[in-house]
């Protein structure tokens, strides 16, 4: 398990953070996601053997946002 922080600059309200956290339910290998509109960032704890940072970035993109590894 690793923890990685991504910057998501295009969040516009706290609901965006909720949407990003919902990836917990759909991304295999994710243990926990903490997204913050205040900080415009999300921290993902995931199993690096089952998931890559690129896959997370892609999943975030499907939600309508742009994530950049911090």
């Amino acid at each position: 398990m690793i923890k990685q922080t991504f910057r998501v600059a295009d969040m516009s309200c706290s609901n965006c953070a909720m949407k990003l956290e919902s990836l917990e339910d759909s991304l295999d290998g994710v243990k926990e996601i903490n997204a913050s509109y205040h900080k415009l960032s999300m921290t993902v704890e995931y199993d690096e053997t089952r998931l890559t940072a690129a896959q997370i970035v892609e999943a975030v993109k499907r939600k309508g946002y742009t994530a950049v590894p911090a």
Binding site: C13, S14, A17, M18, E21, S22, E24, D25, N34, S36, Y37, H38
Partner: peptide, 13 residues
């Protein structure tokens, strides 16, 4: 902007 506590957002979801 008030961010709801994570346990609430997770419960709602």
């Amino acid at each position: 902007s008030i961010e709801p506590p994570k346990f609430i957002t997770r419960y709602i979801r």
